[in-house]
């Protein structure tokens, strides 16, 4: 077992454990901790798959940004006084069956990289820039427009909420 295999295995374990915690945790604190573990695991997967740029961006945007916002929202919405707010769920076998079936189908259908092959080459940020500013320029610009739209949408939502 090489160092790369170990890195991939630990990243996969972190992803699975974080996802399980996010889906099943009862307290809000544990939910956010698990979501953080999941997002860190995703960043490690990106690194193991040879994309340090994407890994750094994942940490920057999700752990430093989105997760902090989730925690803020939980602090605002949390009902308990001083206690960590509960995040309730209504477990039922039907939902579990749907999720299990989806897991089996996805695990069979999705394309796999054969295990045991050499670790992938690192994708340099310059190659990504070539794609984003070359053939992918439309998608790149659209992403910018989407961010602007999201910014305005958040402003409108928060302002209209404050009036009442």
């Amino acid at each position: 077992m090489s160092a790369h295999d170990l890195a991939v295995a630990s990243a996969a374990a972190l992803v699975l454990a974080g996802a399980a915690g996010t889906a099943l945790a009862r307290s809000a604190t544990r939910l956010v901790l698990s979501l953080g573990a999941f997002l860190l695991g995703v960043a490690l997967c990106f690194l193991a798959l040879g994309s340090p740029l994407l890994a750094a961006a994942q940490v920057f945007v999700y752990i430093g940004g989105v997760l902090v916002l989730v925690l803020f929202a939980l602090m605002v919405v949390g009902r308990g006084d001083g206690e960590s707010p509960r995040v309730e769920s209504r477990h039922d076998p039907g939902a579990a069956l749907v999720a299990l079936g989806l897991f089996v189908v996805l695990a069979i259908v999705t394309p796999k990289r054969p295990s045991g092959i050499a670790p992938p080459e690192m994708v340099s940020p310059l190659a990504v820039a070539d794609v984003l500013l070359g053939s992918g320029i439309v998608a790149f610009e659209l992403a910018g427009v989407l961010l602007l739209a999201a910014l305005l949408a958040v402003l409108v939502i928060v302002k209209s909420g404050g009036e009442r």
Partner: peptide
């Protein structure tokens, strides 16, 4: 391989959470 299975599991858990 292991990553694909882990991702399928995480996706299914996400569906379950929703």
């Amino acid at each position: 391989m292991i990553l694909t299975v882990a991702c399928a599991g995480a996706f299914a858990l996400g569906v379950y959470a929703v």
